[in-house]
């Protein structure tokens, strides 16, 4: 599994564009199972979504990293959400405000009893970011499409280029966000200084980023001027949580995967990556699939921590910034 973030592209577009016909058949046979309930409260399968596309209670939202994917073909009825405009504050570095998310969900026709299904490219990385943000603001029923856009495409399922205009809702989100899902620098530094040893830190970047051999994955500007990881963090690259087709591994496999590095849900967990995108995916596995109680995402992640002045860092590779 690589950390290649902008990998999809034209092949995906074409398979989306070409895949229509076989698909009507599949959708029809799937609709026979309409009544079937989703297997988990956190994930829906491509079969389930195909059978429930017309259910007005199901609101589908695409969050893809690559621009132009949604426009060239998306799951019928889906609303497009831009990760860099809709899910974050565009001026200060922060997640989108409650009002911003509330307006977004109203426009997408989400009501109190809606099931919100998020999906996207790149293994649902930013779709998982969206799920984390929606959870913070208390959206009642948020799920990911298991396998995301890639699996939907690979199965040749129907796509649409027609814009939809859902009837706007009057959804009102909880007044106070659930900040127990989020860790800040001030939470993380005491952990690194061994003052909060009961908290487990999980770094889900690639081994080379974790060890400090590189500052950022190939193709990215470094953005952090120190390499390495937060002292005490263990490394489980995000890709180990998924199967080759991009779906999440089973709950038992996930439990064993994290237990092997001492993370079993008995202690609070803080998960981080470079900008909080990939770690949303692992956060989803820990919090929503394994159901561990206290799992926070540190969205400042390495681009904040690795630039902070005076904080302890573990850099086993010893890479020196600026040295050639």
């Amino acid at each position: 599994m690589t950390d290649q973030p902008f990998s999809l592209s034209r092949r995906g577009i074409a398979s989306l564009a070409l895949g229509g016909a076989a698909v009507a058949l599949q959708a029809r046979s799937a609709s026979a199972q309409q009544a079937a309930a989703p297997a988990s409260q956190a994930l829906v399968s491509t079969e389930w979504l195909a059978a429930n596309l017309r259910d007005p209670k199901v609101r589908i939202i695409e969050v893809s990293v690559n621009p132009g994917l949604f426009e060239r073909g998306h799951i019928p009825g889906a609303t497009n959400v831009s990760w860099h405009r809709d899910l974050v504050e565009t001026v200060r570095r922060d997640i989108a405000s409650r009002d911003q998310i509330q307006n977004l969900l109203r426009r997408a026709g989400v009501t109190e009893d809606s099931t919100v299904v998020l999906y996207g490219d790149n293994n649902n990385w930013f779709a998982a970011w969206g799920a984390w943000v929606f959870d913070i603001y208390g959206v009642r029923d948020v799920r990911l499409l298991d396998g995301g856009r890639r699996k939907w495409e690979a199965e040749g399922r129907a796509v649409s280029t027609r814009p939809v205009q859902p009837t706007a809702s009057n959804l009102t989100l909880a007044a106070a966000p659930n900040l127990a899902l989020r860790a800040r620098l001030t939470d993380v530094v005491p952990i690194a200084q061994n003052q909060a040893a009961e908290v487990k830190l999980l770094d889900i970047r690639s081994p080379d980023e974790y060890s400090g051999r590189i500052f950022a994955p190939q193709g990215f500007q470094e953005l952090a001027i120190r390499a390495g990881h937060i002292p005490g963090a263990v490394n489980v690259p995000w890709g180990q949580a998924v199967r080759p087709d991009g779906t999440f591994k089973s709950v038992d496999e996930l439990r064993a995967l994290y237990a092997a590095v001492g993370i079993d849900g008995s202690k609070p967990i803080v998960v981080y990556c470079r900008i909080g995108e990939r770690s949303s995916h692992s956060w989803f596995a820990l919090k929503r699939l394994l159901g561990y109680q206290n799992v926070r995402q540190y969205d400042g992640s390495w681009t904040e921590y690795g630039n902070a002045v005076g904080v302890p860092i573990s850099n086993p590779a010893g890479t020196v910034w600026g040295a050639t």
């Binding site: 831009s82 405009r85 280029t161 027609r162 814009p163 205009q165």
Partner: peptide, 15 residues
């Protein structure tokens, strides 16, 4: 018209 139904909003058509 299919990709950006409302052209007056910010943002350019992809590609």
């Amino acid at each position: 018209g299919a990709w950006l139904p409302v052209p007056l909003r910010p943002g350019l058509p992809p590609d």
